[in-house]
Nucleic acid binder design. Structure first.
Length: 893
RNA sequence: GCCGGCGUGGCGAAAUUGGUAGACGCGCUUGACUCAAAAUCAAGUGGACGCAAGUCCGUGUGGGUUCGAUUCCCUCCGCCGGUACCA
């Protein structure tokens, strides 16, 4: 390519750099690396006597596309705080790593036959180069990658902890399954535990004393009981299967992939699940311990979806069967005029009458072939079929028809409902559609229409011989009927969650293999000594398409000499990211995933001090990681009940056109280009100056230039150009003490920047630095101490420039551990302060008044002020408000 | 639909507990330097009227509380995010 042509055709003219960032940025990056400047001290090492600060970034998936400008946003924010805290005397842990398992590398392998490990390594190298070019103060000696066998050895080990544990309903925590195994065995050895744990005693009774003598439970029965309680278990339930991805997905992942155009259908398959639902209440309750944004907590609360109500059993007329329903409105039981089962409900076949059989079968088949999307999209019109059966309302003996309809979901509650059309929108619609009776049982508090009224009111038409709710307000009616149901053994108070168990297996190659083998149809844990279990090499990474995982093709690996076979599913990408923040603490430990003392040093109290990342993980990673952490906590492996004490979501950076950055729109900004043209410091500062961290905001190249000019001004405070265009120390620097005015500017900045860093208001902190810089630019003689203070204050934001200036000012060592400047109030107090004089709330004069003037003096000064009199003429002052240091407001009539 | 958040100059945004609206930056205008340009430095920049001093208007809309509201309360409108037959 002809070079002259290519330079003249580029839009950016070859302008001189404002400061030689291209020289000193790499220089300082090398310095930090060679001197291990940012190595964090673990307990026992020098430096660990300081208070600790742990700031964590959400580690990236190293994609082939490289870094985009969204990554450095959060990374810069944590880096600024880490550098700030080091200067304030903290031992700072600031690590980085790679969430490197994932589908893209595998898809590339399918196309090219190249092992995903090679692609992954290449991408990590590129990501690391890019991240290091931005001068983040990571302790690279703690770098981890989830694909590293020495890392996923412990991911597999944690899976085994889940597998070997059960959730104890009495203690409400995970406990070793060995306890349960002992309790149900013929001769329990640990009966002393039962005193403190009636659940174990109950399990024992269920298996022993309740049986007839000599009728010992079989091995299989015992095994099945334990498997039903493991936190990691195998289930045959319908799952989200994506034929074109060739794998199953978790509920939480479905939307992400369907949005990308993949199809997802429900299909019953045998899969590994994790019992996260057992932790639903604790995951909900412990949100209160966390310093997270309300909106994020709310998202988690909604996802967990707790609702209180009652379970009620309806007898089916003329049969032994009972239909169990969950309702949040037991007070409306008298208004139940029909029932609905989900089409997949197991009782459907049992209760359907002969005349209805064909219609029911037909409807079930249609429902089964509908994808979830169809089922919700057709929400406008309700469909359903009568089973021919009748149920008996337990409160009044009414016979009500039983229908099936796909607006009742099989996965929530009991998969069956009592329909109260008068006070439920969906039931109301359905009843209108099929002409079913609608009976009012709640009187609205206002004169709203009772039809379809779903709020709280007063019960009406709700009385039988045994129980009456009439006249009771809704909450009381709920309590009364629930108590009555419990007494009559017809139902009970019940709590339900939307949260489902976590589908934990994937039919992929590039993930952690399960440390599980199958023997005679039963799963068994691999001994810890066999970890890490590596995946086999394959010639062909293509999924079979029928749901059998790629690993099943490696028959040498799958089939073991003793006739058992390996589990061939792999773990989802979330597995590795569930605990990486713990491995950073003790990344080289070969005996444990993390030493308990090290955990305690960095995690106490409350967990990671600051975690910054994208909001897209609100219900995925952040819920999964909390769950794993709680299991590890219950089993005594970590010291805090929650992993991330404080969490902040950075806002998305949009393209210059205020649209989401995307290749197809052509509005993507590559950080490499910005660094080449303006330097890493300018990129960092601009990303922080754009606006509040949490806010969504558009990119602006001229904005980058503005910040770049600011950094150039700072540079020229210290450096001047010589005849040849080189940079020499500026002749305007003086060693004399600073003037009062300069001192005031410096100390105002120290106070402002410090407070703004504490509040994470990076944009206004930079603005304070600009104000100080502008003030110093105006000075002919610049006191060295003022420039030193500026360099220190600037160093968290623009560390390369600050280091360079610091060394130009005569210092030999890095400024990374220089004490953070302290402001002195004596420079901030002034003799005179501005005073605003208002008449009837409108500003009429601005005065300079003595700072120590008292209220009467201020009032007098205000009344005499020039320009105020004309507004007082002919009026009387009826009230005077004096706010010292601010204003005087004269109210006249 | 429901839940949460947000509406401030031409643009990104600032404004302790209610107390001078628009800090800082971009953009724009003018000047200095230059043969000229770039860069830099200096001054100005919410709107309307006015030669000017100045006056009036102004934080999505309409109302309320208050001596005083961008800030607190209510109504409506708009935008963003989450969720969606969850009984």
């Amino acid at each position: 390519m002809d070079e002259t042509v290519s330079t003249s055709s580029t839009s950016t003219p070859q302008t001189r750099k404002q400061f030689p960032f291209g020289d000193f940025e790499p220089k300082w990056q090398t310095y930090w690396q060679e001197n291990s400047t940012f190595r964090a001290a673990n307990p026992g090492e020098p430096g660990s006597e300081k208070p600790k600060y742990y700031a964590l970034d959400m580690f990236p998936y190293p994609s082939g596309a490289g870094l985009h400008v969204g990554h450095p946003e959060g990374y810069t924010a944590t880096d600024i705080l880490c550098r700030f805290q080091r200067m304030r005397g903290y031992n700072v842990l600031h690590p980085m790593g790679w969430d490197s398992f994932g589908l893209p590398a595998e898809q590339y392998a399918i196309k090219t036959g190249q092992h995903p490990r090679l692609t992954t390594e290449r991408n990590i190298a590129n990501f690391k180069r890019q991240i290091q070019s931005l001068g983040f103060s990571y302790d690279w000696s703690r770098e981890v990658a989830t694909t590293d066998p020495e890392y996923f050895r412990w991911t597999q080990w944690i899976f085994l902890q889940l597998y070997q544990s059960y959730f104890d309903p009495f203690h409400k925590k995970a406990m070793p399954i060995a306890l349960l195994e002992d309790a149900i065995s013929e001769e329990p050895k640990r009966q002393e535990e039962w005193i403190e744990n009636p659940f174990l005693a109950g399990a024992h009774l269920a298996f022993r004393e309740a049986r007839k003598e000599g009728d010992a439970p079989s091995k299989d029965e015992l095994r099945a009981y334990l498997d039903e309680h493991r936190l990691a278990f195998v289930s045959e339930a319908p799952v989200n299967w994506s034929p074109d991805l060739g794998t199953v997905l978790a509920n939480e992942e479905v939307e992400e992939w369907t949005a990308k155009g993949h199809t997802v259908v429900r299909k019953p398959m045998r899969q590994w699940m994790l019992r996260i639902t057992d932790y639903a209440q604790r995951l909900l309750d412990d949100l209160d311990l966390l310093d997270w944004s309300d909106s994020l907590k709310e998202m988690q609360r909604n996802w967990i979806g707790r609702s209180e109500g009652a379970e009620v059993r309806f007898a089916v007329k003329g049969s032994e069967h009972e239909i169990e329903v969950f309702t949040t409105r037991p007070d409306t039981l008298f208004g139940a005029t029909y029932m609905v089962l989900a089409p997949e409900h197991e009782l459907v076949e049992e209760i359907t009458t002969d005349e209805q059989k064909i219609a029911i079968k037909d409807y079930q088949q249609k429902a089964a072939t509908k994808s979830d999307l169809d089922r919700t999209d057709l929400a406008k019109e309700k469909t359903g079929v009568f089973t021919g059966a009748y149920a008996i309302n337990p409160v009044n003996g009414e016979e009500i028809p039983v229908w099936i309809a796909d607006y009742v979901l099989t996965g929530y509650g009991t998969g069956a409902i009592m329909a109260v059309p008068a006070h439920d929108e969906r039931d109301f619609e359905f009843a209108q559609q099929f002409d079913l009776p609608i009976i009012q049982v709640v009187q609205p508090p206002t004169d709203d229409d009772w039809q379809g009224f779903t709020g709280n009111g007063t019960s009406v038409n709700s009385a039988s011989k045994e129980v009456s709710l009439d006249g009771l307000p809704t909450p009381e009616a709920k309590r009364k009927i629930t108590a009555w149901l419990e007494e009559a053994c017809l139902g009970s108070a019940q709590v339900n969650f939307k949260l489902r168990d976590w589908l934990f297996s994937r039919q992929r190659y590039w993930g952690e293999p399960f440390p599980i083998v199958w023997k005679d149809g039963h799963h068994e844990a691999l001994p810890e000594s066999e970890l890490p279990l590596l995946p086999p090499d394959l010639d062909d990474y293509k999924p079979a398409g029928d749901g059998s995982p790629p690993l099943s093709k490696a028959s040498d690996w799958v089939n073991l000499p003793d006739g058992s076979t390996r589990e061939t599913n792999t773990m989802p990408q979330w597995a590795g990211s569930c605990w990486y923040y713990l491995r950073y603490l003790d990344p080289k430990n070969e005996k444990k995933f993390c030493d308990p003392q090290v955990d305690e040093y960095w995690m106490q109290p409350g967990g990671v001090d600051l975690y910054i990342g994208g909001v897209e993980h609100a219900v995925l990673h952040l819920l999964y990681a909390r769950f794993w952490h709680k299991v590890l906590f219950d089993l005594g492996h970590v010291s805090t009940p929650e992993p991330f004490k404080r969490l902040v979501n950075q806002g998305l950076i949009l393209g210059e056109d205020s649209q989401k950055m995307s290749k197809s729109r052509g509005n993507v900004v590559n950080p490499d280009d910005v660094v080449a043209q303006y330097g890493a410091d300018a990129l960092r500062c601009f990303e922080m100056f754009m606006g509040p961290l949490e806010q969504v905001k558009p990119w602006s190249m001229s904005g980058v230039e503005g910040v770049y000019r600011f950094l150039g001004r700072v540079w020229r405070l210290v450096m001047a150009e010589d005849q040849e265009g080189g940079w020499i120390s500026s002749g305007q620097i003086v060693e004399e003490p600073a003037s009062d005015e300069v001192q005031r500017a410096v100390h105002t900045a120290i106070k402002g920047v410090t407070e703004k860093l504490e509040g994470m208001n990076f944009n206004t902190a930079i603005s304070d630095l600009m104000v100080l810089t502008n003030a110093l630019t105006k000075e002919k003689h610049r006191p060295k101490e003022a420039l030193e203070a500026l360099a220190l204050l600037l160093s968290p934001f623009a560390p390369h420039l600050a280091e360079e200036l610091w060394s130009q000012l005569g210092h030999e060592k890095t400024l990374a551990y220089e004490p953070w400047p302290q402001h002195d109030d004596k420079w901030l107090t002034v003799d005179e302060v501005p005073l605003v004089v208002q008449v009837n709330g409108k500003v009429r004069a601005k005065l300079q008044v003595p700072a120590d003037a008292d209220k009467p003096a201020l009032e007098a000064l205000a009344k005499e002020a020039e320009g105020v009199q004309t507004w007082l003429d002919g009026k009387t002052i009826v009230k005077t408000i004096v706010v010292p240091g601010k204003l005087v407001n004269l109210v006249v009539k």
